[in-house]
């Protein structure tokens, strides 16, 4: 009984919501534009965050520490140091660079100028370990432990670069998060106000419904569905604009710049962002409606 009543109700609520949208076309379009604007910015921020996150991850992976061994170390000692370094927890990869490897790669880096190395012994550079940490924030403790190992002469890291990257990305993440929160709150209130006008115009109608014995939810549901619909349409328009915007901007900028900015390809991040935007639009619309109707139900 309750289920059939609820099911019958859903059909009624949906048809009421669409009738009301039709009667209040201008208001509905204003709300849609509001949602669209907020979600457009939100989508833009999400694209930034997704790319910043990916960029950070890539830099973190590339960020390595080089631990140089004593110049006089024997091959056995070098192996012992390598094993000790490998045993440190939190390390993703350790690569052993022998004296010969170092010599060859140094020579290669000089290119045509390698002639200056003519006559030098291939063991004039010390052996070393290249270390990549699992988490960039764990790098400093790892460096401290590596320094304690007997046979390590010097540890070279790009500490300042790493610190800069960490603080820069966290600023961007926080900035986007705060802007998103603010935008969401603003959007909810603008929608609430738009729907409030609609509700206010229909105050008499709501009172009549209450006199005839309508429950609060019976009156609320059509407004909520209306809000959700407005929110979803707003979200779809914002998604469309993001696509069109990036497609036209994409053809204007050269590929190598694009691949530097869009670490995550647009087509890969957009489906999930679209889903989030649609969910957000629906949520904003529903909350706006609930806020708007609340005051008028106390009869």
């Amino acid at each position: 009984m309750v289920t059939t009543l609820a099911f019958r109700g859903v059909r009624y609520y949906i048809s009421e919501a669409f009738k009301s949208l039709w009667y209040n076309k201008v208001m509905a379009i204003t709300s849609m534009i509001t949602v669209m604007g907020s979600l457009l910015l939100l989508g833009f921020f999400m694209l930034i965050v997704v790319n910043v996150n990916e960029l950070t991850a890539q830099i973190e992976n590339q960020c390595e520490v080089q631990a140089f061994m004593n110049y006089e170390a024997t091959a056995e000692q070098e192996q012992a140091v390598f094993s000790a370094v490998s045993a440190i927890p939190g390390i993703k990869t350790v690569t052993f660079v022998s004296k010969e490897d170092a010599f060859e790669s140094y020579k290669a880096s000089l290119g045509d100028d390698a002639v200056v190395m003519e006559g030098m012994a291939p063991d004039f550079l010390p052996a070393s370990c290249r270390i990549v940490a699992e988490d960039i924030r764990q790098l400093q403790p790892i460096i401290e432990q590596v320094k304690q190992i007997d046979g390590i002469a010097e540890v070279v890291s790009q500490r300042e670069t790493i610190d800069n990257i960490i603080s820069f990305t966290s600023v961007i993440r926080k900035g986007c998060l705060i802007s998103t929160l603010l935008l969401t709150i603003i959007a909810i209130f603008i929608i609430a106000n738009t729907i409030k006008l609609d509700v206010h115009a229909r105050q008499k109608e709501i009172h009549i419904m209450k006199y005839v014995g309508a429950t609060d939810w019976f009156i609320r549901w059509p407004f909520i569905i209306e809000g959700i619909f407005v929110g979803i349409i707003g979200a779809l328009i914002s998604i469309l604009l993001l696509w069109v915007g990036f497609a036209s901007a994409g053809s204007a900028i050269p590929d190598f710049v694009k691949s530097a900015i869009f670490v995550v390809p647009f087509g890969q991040s957009m489906p999930i962002i679209s889903l989030i935007l649609i969910a957000f639009g629906a949520l904003i619309g529903a909350l706006g409606s609930i806020i708007a109707v609340r005051k008028h139900l106390a009869v």
Partner: peptide
Amino acid sequence: KQIPALRRSLGV
């Protein structure tokens, strides 16, 4: 919450 039930039992 019971007010709608009351009003449904009345015609006004």
